[in-house]
Design a protein around this nucleic acid. Structure first.
Lengths: 240, 240
DNA sequence: CGGAATGTTGATATGCCTCAACTAAAGTGG
DNA sequence: CCACTTTAGTTGAGGCATATCAACATTCCG
Protein backbone atom coordinates (compact mmCIF):
# COMPACT_ATOMS: atom_id res chain seq x y z
CA UNK A 1 0.00 0.00 0.00
CA UNK A 2 0.88 3.62 -0.32
CA UNK A 3 0.14 4.12 3.33
CA UNK A 4 3.65 5.27 4.20
CA UNK A 5 2.76 8.88 3.36
CA UNK A 6 -0.56 9.05 5.16
CA UNK A 7 0.96 7.31 8.19
CA UNK A 8 3.64 9.93 8.26
CA UNK A 9 1.25 12.87 7.99
CA UNK A 10 -1.11 11.45 10.60
CA UNK A 11 1.64 11.61 13.18
CA UNK A 12 1.09 15.35 13.36
CA UNK A 13 -2.11 16.09 11.42
CA UNK A 14 -5.69 14.99 11.68
CA UNK A 15 -6.96 13.67 8.36
CA UNK A 16 -10.53 12.84 7.36
CA UNK A 17 -11.18 9.40 5.87
CA UNK A 18 -11.64 11.03 2.49
CA UNK A 19 -8.22 12.72 2.85
CA UNK A 20 -6.61 9.38 3.58
CA UNK A 21 -8.37 7.77 0.66
CA UNK A 22 -7.18 10.45 -1.74
CA UNK A 23 -3.66 10.26 -0.38
CA UNK A 24 -3.59 6.55 -0.99
CA UNK A 25 -4.65 7.17 -4.59
CA UNK A 26 -1.51 9.21 -5.21
CA UNK A 27 0.78 7.20 -7.43
CA UNK A 28 4.50 7.44 -7.76
CA UNK A 29 7.30 6.04 -9.78
CA UNK A 30 9.57 3.99 -7.54
CA UNK A 31 13.31 4.15 -8.13
CA UNK A 32 16.34 2.61 -6.54
CA UNK A 33 19.53 4.49 -5.90
CA UNK A 34 23.00 3.28 -5.04
CA UNK A 35 25.11 4.87 -2.35
CA UNK A 36 25.88 8.50 -3.06
CA UNK A 37 23.76 8.60 -6.17
CA UNK A 38 21.82 11.81 -6.75
CA UNK A 39 18.04 11.86 -6.57
CA UNK A 40 17.92 15.55 -7.49
CA UNK A 41 20.75 17.92 -8.24
CA UNK A 42 21.34 21.49 -7.29
CA UNK A 43 20.00 23.64 -10.13
CA UNK A 44 17.39 21.11 -11.24
CA UNK A 45 13.82 22.26 -11.80
CA UNK A 46 11.95 19.09 -10.95
CA UNK A 47 8.27 18.55 -11.71
CA UNK A 48 8.09 15.72 -9.20
CA UNK A 49 8.67 15.49 -5.46
CA UNK A 50 10.40 12.58 -3.80
CA UNK A 51 9.17 10.42 -0.96
CA UNK A 52 11.64 8.12 0.75
CA UNK A 53 10.40 4.54 0.65
CA UNK A 54 13.38 2.73 2.07
CA UNK A 55 16.83 3.58 3.30
CA UNK A 56 18.13 7.09 3.76
CA UNK A 57 18.71 10.16 1.66
CA UNK A 58 20.62 13.32 2.48
CA UNK A 59 20.33 16.92 1.43
CA UNK A 60 23.61 18.63 0.74
CA UNK A 61 25.25 21.59 -0.80
CA UNK A 62 28.45 21.45 -2.81
CA UNK A 63 31.07 24.03 -2.02
CA UNK A 64 33.34 25.76 -4.53
CA UNK A 65 36.41 23.84 -3.34
CA UNK A 66 34.70 20.50 -3.86
CA UNK A 67 33.80 19.87 -0.24
CA UNK A 68 30.25 19.00 0.63
CA UNK A 69 28.02 20.19 3.44
CA UNK A 70 25.18 17.91 4.42
CA UNK A 71 22.11 19.71 5.66
CA UNK A 72 19.75 16.94 6.75
CA UNK A 73 19.02 13.24 6.46
CA UNK A 74 15.70 11.60 5.76
CA UNK A 75 14.10 8.22 6.32
CA UNK A 76 11.10 6.33 4.97
CA UNK A 77 8.01 8.55 4.75
CA UNK A 78 9.95 11.81 4.56
CA UNK A 79 9.54 14.27 1.70
CA UNK A 80 13.07 15.56 1.24
CA UNK A 81 12.23 18.00 -1.53
CA UNK A 82 8.66 19.05 -0.84
CA UNK A 83 9.80 22.64 -1.24
CA UNK A 84 10.12 22.07 -4.99
CA UNK A 85 6.31 22.20 -5.10
CA UNK A 86 6.55 25.96 -4.75
CA UNK A 87 10.16 26.80 -5.42
CA UNK A 88 11.22 26.18 -8.98
CA UNK A 89 14.91 25.63 -8.72
CA UNK A 90 16.72 23.31 -6.34
CA UNK A 91 19.17 25.23 -4.18
CA UNK A 92 20.69 21.98 -2.92
CA UNK A 93 21.03 18.36 -3.96
CA UNK A 94 19.45 15.20 -2.61
CA UNK A 95 21.39 11.94 -2.73
CA UNK A 96 21.11 8.41 -1.45
CA UNK A 97 23.02 7.52 1.71
CA UNK A 98 23.60 3.83 1.31
CA UNK A 99 21.05 2.06 -0.86
CA UNK A 100 17.75 3.87 -0.97
CA UNK A 101 14.40 3.52 -2.61
CA UNK A 102 12.46 6.64 -3.50
CA UNK A 103 9.05 7.37 -4.99
CA UNK A 104 8.64 10.28 -7.39
CA UNK A 105 5.24 11.97 -7.30
CA UNK A 106 4.26 14.49 -9.99
CA UNK A 107 3.73 17.98 -8.60
CA UNK A 108 0.57 18.24 -10.67
CA UNK A 109 -1.06 15.37 -8.76
CA UNK A 110 -0.16 16.82 -5.40
CA UNK A 111 -1.33 20.31 -6.27
CA UNK A 112 -4.61 18.94 -7.60
CA UNK A 113 -5.07 17.11 -4.33
CA UNK A 114 -4.53 20.35 -2.41
CA UNK A 115 -7.32 21.93 -4.37
CA UNK A 116 -9.80 19.19 -3.48
CA UNK A 117 -8.60 18.51 0.05
CA UNK A 118 -7.08 21.60 1.62
CA UNK A 119 -6.46 19.66 4.83
CA UNK A 120 -3.94 17.51 3.02
CA UNK A 121 -2.23 20.66 1.85
CA UNK A 122 -2.03 21.94 5.40
CA UNK A 123 -0.60 18.63 6.57
CA UNK A 124 2.17 18.78 4.01
CA UNK A 125 2.72 22.44 4.79
CA UNK A 126 3.14 21.46 8.41
CA UNK A 127 5.56 18.81 7.24
CA UNK A 128 7.73 21.44 5.55
CA UNK A 129 7.55 23.59 8.68
CA UNK A 130 8.84 20.72 10.82
CA UNK A 131 11.63 20.43 8.31
CA UNK A 132 12.48 24.08 8.80
CA UNK A 133 12.54 23.60 12.57
CA UNK A 134 15.15 20.90 12.08
CA UNK A 135 17.23 23.26 9.97
CA UNK A 136 17.06 25.91 12.67
CA UNK A 137 18.26 23.42 15.22
CA UNK A 138 21.09 22.44 12.90
CA UNK A 139 22.16 26.07 12.73
CA UNK A 140 22.27 26.20 16.50
CA UNK A 141 23.96 22.84 16.86
CA UNK A 142 26.69 23.42 14.32
CA UNK A 143 27.30 27.00 15.37
CA UNK A 144 27.17 26.93 19.15
CA UNK A 145 28.15 23.50 20.38
CA UNK A 146 31.57 21.93 20.77
CA UNK A 147 32.29 18.78 18.78
CA UNK A 148 31.36 16.26 21.50
CA UNK A 149 28.04 17.95 22.32
CA UNK A 150 27.40 18.59 18.65
CA UNK A 151 27.78 14.97 17.66
CA UNK A 152 25.79 13.81 20.68
CA UNK A 153 22.94 16.12 19.73
CA UNK A 154 23.05 14.88 16.17
CA UNK A 155 22.80 11.26 17.32
CA UNK A 156 19.96 12.13 19.69
CA UNK A 157 17.94 13.69 16.92
CA UNK A 158 18.51 10.74 14.64
CA UNK A 159 17.51 8.17 17.24
CA UNK A 160 14.52 10.18 18.38
CA UNK A 161 13.19 10.64 14.85
CA UNK A 162 13.65 6.96 14.09
CA UNK A 163 11.76 6.05 17.28
CA UNK A 164 8.88 8.40 16.45
CA UNK A 165 8.54 6.71 13.11
CA UNK A 166 8.90 3.22 14.53
CA UNK A 167 11.94 2.60 12.38
CA UNK A 168 14.17 1.82 15.35
CA UNK A 169 14.20 -0.87 17.94
CA UNK A 170 14.88 0.16 21.50
CA UNK A 171 18.46 1.30 21.82
CA UNK A 172 19.55 1.29 18.23
CA UNK A 173 18.61 2.38 14.75
CA UNK A 174 20.02 2.11 11.25
CA UNK A 175 22.19 5.06 10.36
CA UNK A 176 24.16 4.21 7.24
CA UNK A 177 26.61 7.11 7.38
CA UNK A 178 30.35 6.97 7.08
CA UNK A 179 32.54 9.10 9.31
CA UNK A 180 33.08 11.31 6.29
CA UNK A 181 29.31 11.93 6.18
CA UNK A 182 29.39 12.70 9.88
CA UNK A 183 32.17 15.22 9.40
CA UNK A 184 30.46 16.84 6.43
CA UNK A 185 27.19 17.12 8.33
CA UNK A 186 28.67 18.49 11.53
CA UNK A 187 31.14 20.92 10.03
CA UNK A 188 34.29 19.32 11.38
CA UNK A 189 37.26 17.54 9.84
CA UNK A 190 37.18 13.78 9.37
CA UNK A 191 39.92 13.35 11.94
CA UNK A 192 37.98 15.35 14.50
CA UNK A 193 34.82 13.40 13.72
CA UNK A 194 36.70 10.18 14.34
CA UNK A 195 38.19 11.35 17.65
CA UNK A 196 34.91 12.86 18.78
CA UNK A 197 33.16 9.57 18.18
CA UNK A 198 35.86 7.86 20.21
CA UNK A 199 35.23 10.22 23.09
CA UNK A 200 31.52 9.40 22.99
CA UNK A 201 32.41 5.72 23.00
CA UNK A 202 34.63 6.17 26.04
CA UNK A 203 31.79 7.99 27.77
CA UNK A 204 29.90 4.78 27.11
CA UNK A 205 26.72 6.46 25.98
CA UNK A 206 26.63 5.83 22.25
CA UNK A 207 28.36 4.08 19.39
CA UNK A 208 28.19 4.12 15.65
CA UNK A 209 29.60 1.11 13.81
CA UNK A 210 28.80 -0.39 10.43
CA UNK A 211 25.88 1.89 9.80
CA UNK A 212 24.16 1.19 13.08
CA UNK A 213 23.69 3.76 15.81
CA UNK A 214 23.64 2.18 19.28
CA UNK A 215 22.37 4.23 22.17
CA UNK A 216 23.82 2.78 25.36
CA UNK A 217 22.79 5.51 27.79
CA UNK A 218 20.10 7.79 26.44
CA UNK A 219 19.94 10.08 29.46
CA UNK A 220 23.65 10.76 29.43
CA UNK A 221 23.70 11.20 25.68
CA UNK A 222 20.84 13.70 25.80
CA UNK A 223 22.56 15.57 28.62
CA UNK A 224 25.86 15.78 26.75
CA UNK A 225 24.11 16.92 23.59
CA UNK A 226 21.85 19.36 25.45
CA UNK A 227 19.07 17.66 23.54
CA UNK A 228 15.57 18.99 24.01
CA UNK A 229 13.22 17.31 21.53
CA UNK A 230 10.58 20.04 21.65
CA UNK A 231 11.76 21.45 18.32
CA UNK A 232 10.73 18.20 16.63
CA UNK A 233 7.13 18.72 17.78
CA UNK A 234 6.60 14.97 17.81
CA UNK A 235 6.36 12.66 20.76
CA UNK A 236 8.51 9.54 20.75
CA UNK A 237 6.84 6.45 22.18
CA UNK A 238 9.68 5.20 24.35
CA UNK A 239 13.38 5.81 24.25
CA UNK A 240 14.92 3.55 26.86
CA UNK B 1 -2.25 51.08 4.03
CA UNK B 2 -1.61 47.47 4.84
CA UNK B 3 0.05 46.97 1.51
CA UNK B 4 3.37 45.95 3.03
CA UNK B 5 2.28 42.30 3.17
CA UNK B 6 0.83 42.04 -0.32
CA UNK B 7 3.85 43.88 -1.74
CA UNK B 8 6.06 41.33 -0.09
CA UNK B 9 4.12 38.32 -1.35
CA UNK B 10 3.87 39.69 -4.88
CA UNK B 11 7.63 39.63 -5.17
CA UNK B 12 7.43 35.89 -5.60
CA UNK B 13 3.75 35.03 -6.09
CA UNK B 14 1.08 36.03 -8.56
CA UNK B 15 -2.01 37.28 -6.77
CA UNK B 16 -5.43 38.00 -8.23
CA UNK B 17 -6.98 41.42 -7.53
CA UNK B 18 -9.40 39.74 -5.15
CA UNK B 19 -6.48 38.14 -3.27
CA UNK B 20 -4.85 41.54 -2.86
CA UNK B 21 -8.09 43.06 -1.71
CA UNK B 22 -8.60 40.42 0.94
CA UNK B 23 -5.01 40.70 2.08
CA UNK B 24 -5.42 44.42 2.55
CA UNK B 25 -8.47 43.76 4.69
CA UNK B 26 -6.37 41.78 7.16
CA UNK B 27 -6.03 43.83 10.29
CA UNK B 28 -3.35 43.68 12.92
CA UNK B 29 -2.48 45.14 16.22
CA UNK B 30 0.63 47.28 15.87
CA UNK B 31 3.18 47.20 18.68
CA UNK B 32 6.50 48.85 19.34
CA UNK B 33 9.43 47.06 20.86
CA UNK B 34 12.64 48.39 22.33
CA UNK B 35 16.02 46.88 21.57
CA UNK B 36 16.26 43.27 22.63
CA UNK B 37 12.66 43.08 23.75
CA UNK B 38 10.90 39.81 23.02
CA UNK B 39 8.06 39.65 20.52
CA UNK B 40 7.50 35.95 21.18
CA UNK B 41 9.30 33.66 23.58
CA UNK B 42 10.46 30.09 23.23
CA UNK B 43 7.71 27.88 24.64
CA UNK B 44 4.91 30.33 23.85
CA UNK B 45 1.81 29.08 22.06
CA UNK B 46 0.79 32.20 20.18
CA UNK B 47 -2.56 32.62 18.45
CA UNK B 48 -1.22 35.48 16.37
CA UNK B 49 1.55 35.77 13.83
CA UNK B 50 3.86 38.74 13.57
CA UNK B 51 4.62 40.90 10.57
CA UNK B 52 7.55 43.29 10.75
CA UNK B 53 6.42 46.83 10.01
CA UNK B 54 9.58 48.73 10.78
CA UNK B 55 13.07 48.00 11.97
CA UNK B 56 14.46 44.52 12.44
CA UNK B 57 13.68 41.44 14.49
CA UNK B 58 15.78 38.35 15.08
CA UNK B 59 14.99 34.74 15.76
CA UNK B 60 17.19 33.11 18.35
CA UNK B 61 17.58 30.19 20.62
CA UNK B 62 18.81 30.41 24.19
CA UNK B 63 21.44 27.92 25.24
CA UNK B 64 21.69 26.24 28.64
CA UNK B 65 24.77 28.27 29.60
CA UNK B 66 23.01 31.55 28.90
CA UNK B 67 24.54 32.19 25.53
CA UNK B 68 22.30 32.94 22.60
CA UNK B 69 22.36 31.72 19.04
CA UNK B 70 20.67 33.93 16.46
CA UNK B 71 19.12 32.04 13.59
CA UNK B 72 17.89 34.75 11.24
CA UNK B 73 17.02 38.42 10.97
CA UNK B 74 13.95 39.98 9.42
CA UNK B 75 12.95 43.31 7.94
CA UNK B 76 9.72 45.11 7.09
CA UNK B 77 7.23 42.79 5.38
CA UNK B 78 8.73 39.59 6.75
CA UNK B 79 6.68 37.09 8.76
CA UNK B 80 9.18 35.90 11.34
CA UNK B 81 6.85 33.40 13.00
CA UNK B 82 4.53 32.25 10.24
CA UNK B 83 5.28 28.68 11.30
CA UNK B 84 3.17 29.23 14.42
CA UNK B 85 0.13 28.99 12.13
CA UNK B 86 0.64 25.25 12.04
CA UNK B 87 3.07 24.50 14.83
CA UNK B 88 1.64 25.11 18.28
CA UNK B 89 4.66 25.80 20.38
CA UNK B 90 7.51 28.17 19.63
CA UNK B 91 10.82 26.34 19.48
CA UNK B 92 12.70 29.64 19.42
CA UNK B 93 12.23 33.25 20.41
CA UNK B 94 11.74 36.39 18.34
CA UNK B 95 13.08 39.68 19.60
CA UNK B 96 13.55 43.24 18.39
CA UNK B 97 17.00 44.21 17.13
CA UNK B 98 17.09 47.90 17.77
CA UNK B 99 13.70 49.59 17.84
CA UNK B 100 11.10 47.68 15.88
CA UNK B 101 7.45 47.93 15.07
CA UNK B 102 5.49 44.76 14.58
CA UNK B 103 1.91 43.90 13.60
CA UNK B 104 0.18 40.97 15.25
CA UNK B 105 -2.37 39.18 13.06
CA UNK B 106 -4.75 36.60 14.58
CA UNK B 107 -4.18 33.12 13.19
CA UNK B 108 -7.92 32.77 12.82
CA UNK B 109 -8.09 35.60 10.30
CA UNK B 110 -5.23 34.20 8.25
CA UNK B 111 -6.61 30.67 8.23
CA UNK B 112 -10.04 31.95 7.19
CA UNK B 113 -8.41 33.78 4.34
CA UNK B 114 -6.68 30.57 3.22
CA UNK B 115 -10.05 28.91 3.00
CA UNK B 116 -11.49 31.59 0.72
CA UNK B 117 -8.36 32.34 -1.26
CA UNK B 118 -6.10 29.29 -1.51
CA UNK B 119 -3.67 31.26 -3.64
CA UNK B 120 -2.91 33.47 -0.68
CA UNK B 121 -2.20 30.35 1.34
CA UNK B 122 0.21 29.12 -1.29
CA UNK B 123 1.96 32.49 -1.35
CA UNK B 124 2.51 32.38 2.39
CA UNK B 125 3.54 28.75 2.16
CA UNK B 126 6.12 29.78 -0.41
CA UNK B 127 7.18 32.49 2.00
CA UNK B 128 7.89 29.91 4.70
CA UNK B 129 9.77 27.79 2.18
CA UNK B 130 12.02 30.70 1.28
CA UNK B 131 12.62 31.05 4.99
CA UNK B 132 13.71 27.43 5.17
CA UNK B 133 16.10 27.95 2.25
CA UNK B 134 17.75 30.73 4.23
CA UNK B 135 18.13 28.40 7.22
CA UNK B 136 19.76 25.79 5.03
CA UNK B 137 22.21 28.33 3.76
CA UNK B 138 22.95 29.37 7.33
CA UNK B 139 23.78 25.77 8.18
CA UNK B 140 26.23 25.69 5.30
CA UNK B 141 27.66 29.10 6.04
CA UNK B 142 28.22 28.58 9.74
CA UNK B 143 29.47 25.03 9.33
CA UNK B 144 31.72 25.14 6.32
CA UNK B 145 33.15 28.62 5.96
CA UNK B 146 36.02 30.32 7.76
CA UNK B 147 35.24 33.47 9.70
CA UNK B 148 36.11 35.99 6.99
CA UNK B 149 34.11 34.17 4.30
CA UNK B 150 31.33 33.49 6.75
CA UNK B 151 30.88 37.11 7.72
CA UNK B 152 31.20 38.25 4.12
CA UNK B 153 28.45 35.83 3.10
CA UNK B 154 26.27 37.03 5.93
CA UNK B 155 26.68 40.65 4.85
CA UNK B 156 25.99 39.71 1.24
CA UNK B 157 22.72 38.07 2.15
CA UNK B 158 21.67 41.00 4.22
CA UNK B 159 22.43 43.58 1.56
CA UNK B 160 20.88 41.48 -1.18
CA UNK B 161 17.67 40.96 0.74
CA UNK B 162 17.43 44.63 1.57
CA UNK B 163 17.91 45.53 -2.08
CA UNK B 164 15.24 43.09 -3.22
CA UNK B 165 12.83 44.74 -0.85
CA UNK B 166 13.89 48.25 -1.77
CA UNK B 167 14.89 48.94 1.80
CA UNK B 168 18.46 49.79 0.89
CA UNK B 169 20.01 52.51 -1.16
CA UNK B 170 22.82 51.54 -3.49
CA UNK B 171 25.85 50.50 -1.49
CA UNK B 172 24.43 50.51 2.00
CA UNK B 173 21.55 49.35 4.13
CA UNK B 174 20.44 49.63 7.72
CA UNK B 175 21.69 46.74 9.82
CA UNK B 176 21.23 47.60 13.48
CA UNK B 177 23.32 44.78 14.94
CA UNK B 178 26.02 45.02 17.53
CA UNK B 179 29.19 43.00 17.18
CA UNK B 180 27.79 40.77 19.88
CA UNK B 181 24.81 40.04 17.61
CA UNK B 182 27.21 39.31 14.78
CA UNK B 183 29.16 36.87 16.91
CA UNK B 184 26.02 35.17 18.18
CA UNK B 185 24.67 34.82 14.66
CA UNK B 186 27.87 33.53 13.09
CA UNK B 187 28.93 31.16 15.83
CA UNK B 188 32.17 32.87 16.74
CA UNK B 189 33.48 34.73 19.78
CA UNK B 190 33.00 38.46 20.07
CA UNK B 191 36.73 39.03 19.78
CA UNK B 192 36.89 37.01 16.58
CA UNK B 193 33.86 38.83 15.19
CA UNK B 194 35.59 42.13 15.87
CA UNK B 195 38.86 41.05 14.24
CA UNK B 196 37.09 39.45 11.30
CA UNK B 197 35.24 42.68 10.65
CA UNK B 198 38.55 44.51 10.73
CA UNK B 199 39.95 42.17 8.11
CA UNK B 200 36.98 42.86 5.86
CA UNK B 201 37.56 46.57 6.36
CA UNK B 202 41.18 46.22 5.39
CA UNK B 203 40.13 44.35 2.28
CA UNK B 204 38.14 47.48 1.57
CA UNK B 205 35.01 45.68 0.48
CA UNK B 206 32.59 46.25 3.33
CA UNK B 207 32.09 48.04 6.63
CA UNK B 208 29.60 47.92 9.45
CA UNK B 209 29.46 50.94 11.73
CA UNK B 210 26.67 52.39 13.83
CA UNK B 211 24.07 49.99 12.54
CA UNK B 212 24.77 50.69 8.87
CA UNK B 213 26.22 48.13 6.49
CA UNK B 214 28.28 49.76 3.74
CA UNK B 215 29.18 47.70 0.72
CA UNK B 216 32.25 49.26 -0.88
CA UNK B 217 33.05 46.52 -3.38
CA UNK B 218 30.18 44.14 -4.00
CA UNK B 219 32.02 41.88 -6.44
CA UNK B 220 34.90 41.32 -4.09
CA UNK B 221 32.62 40.83 -1.11
CA UNK B 222 30.54 38.24 -2.97
CA UNK B 223 33.70 36.46 -4.09
CA UNK B 224 35.10 36.34 -0.58
CA UNK B 225 31.79 35.11 0.83
CA UNK B 226 31.27 32.61 -2.01
CA UNK B 227 27.88 34.22 -2.26
CA UNK B 228 25.48 32.77 -4.81
CA UNK B 229 22.05 34.34 -4.36
CA UNK B 230 20.15 31.55 -6.09
CA UNK B 231 19.02 30.14 -2.73
CA UNK B 232 17.06 33.35 -2.10
CA UNK B 233 15.00 32.73 -5.23
CA UNK B 234 14.48 36.47 -5.65
CA UNK B 235 16.08 38.79 -8.13
CA UNK B 236 17.65 41.97 -6.80
CA UNK B 237 17.14 45.03 -8.98
CA UNK B 238 20.68 46.39 -8.92
CA UNK B 239 23.53 45.89 -6.53
CA UNK B 240 26.30 48.22 -7.63
C1' DC C 1 27.43 62.73 36.39
C1' DG C 2 27.87 57.79 36.80
C1' DG C 3 27.14 53.33 35.02
C1' DA C 4 26.27 50.26 31.31
C1' DA C 5 26.92 48.84 26.74
C1' DT C 6 29.91 48.65 22.88
C1' DG C 7 34.07 48.37 20.44
C1' DT C 8 39.01 47.51 20.56
C1' DT C 9 43.58 45.54 21.69
C1' DG C 10 47.12 42.32 23.71
C1' DA C 11 48.58 37.95 25.65
C1' DT C 12 48.05 33.10 26.24
C1' DA C 13 46.59 28.45 25.70
C1' DT C 14 44.34 24.90 23.60
C1' DG C 15 41.71 22.63 20.37
C1' DC C 16 41.00 21.83 15.75
C1' DC C 17 42.85 21.33 11.01
C1' DT C 18 46.24 19.56 7.99
C1' DC C 19 49.44 16.31 6.61
C1' DA C 20 50.97 11.78 6.58
C1' DA C 21 51.15 6.99 7.36
C1' DC C 22 49.07 2.73 8.15
C1' DT C 23 45.45 -1.12 8.82
C1' DA C 24 41.46 -3.49 7.61
C1' DA C 25 37.81 -4.47 4.75
C1' DA C 26 35.47 -4.45 0.50
C1' DG C 27 35.21 -4.36 -4.28
C1' DT C 28 37.37 -5.16 -9.08
C1' DG C 29 39.46 -7.34 -12.82
C1' DG C 30 42.78 -10.33 -14.87
C1' DC D 1 41.30 -17.15 -7.08
C1' DC D 2 44.45 -13.83 -6.02
C1' DA D 3 46.65 -9.32 -6.98
C1' DC D 4 45.33 -4.77 -6.99
C1' DT D 5 42.75 -0.72 -5.98
C1' DT D 6 39.62 1.78 -3.38
C1' DT D 7 37.25 3.05 0.66
C1' DA D 8 36.81 3.46 5.55
C1' DG D 9 38.64 3.89 9.91
C1' DT D 10 42.47 5.05 12.94
C1' DT D 11 46.66 7.22 14.89
C1' DG D 12 50.59 10.58 15.48
C1' DA D 13 52.81 15.02 14.92
C1' DG D 14 52.88 19.94 14.33
C1' DG D 15 51.22 24.52 13.46
C1' DC D 16 47.86 27.87 13.37
C1' DA D 17 43.61 30.00 14.44
C1' DT D 18 40.20 30.76 17.48
C1' DA D 19 38.49 31.01 22.37
C1' DT D 20 39.33 32.94 26.65
C1' DC D 21 40.88 36.32 29.85
C1' DA D 22 41.84 40.92 30.87
C1' DA D 23 42.21 45.74 30.31
C1' DC D 24 40.85 49.98 28.42
C1' DA D 25 38.53 53.70 25.38
C1' DT D 26 34.36 55.51 23.85
C1' DT D 27 29.70 56.27 23.49
C1' DC D 28 25.14 55.98 25.06
C1' DC D 29 21.69 56.36 28.44
C1' DG D 30 19.51 57.06 32.75
Amino acid sequence: MHSVLQQKLQIHSKLAPEDVKRLDLLSWEARSYGNNQDVVRQGDKPDVSAIVLQGMVGRYQSLPDGRRQYISFHIAGDLPDAQSLFIDEMDHGVCAVGRAEVGLIPHRDILDLFEDRPTVGFAIWRETLLDAAIFREAVVNNSARQPVARMAHFFCERYYRARVRKLAELGSCPFPLTQTHLAEALGMSIVTANRTLQKLRQLDCVDHVDGVLSVRDWERLAAIGEFNPSYLHLRAPRLV
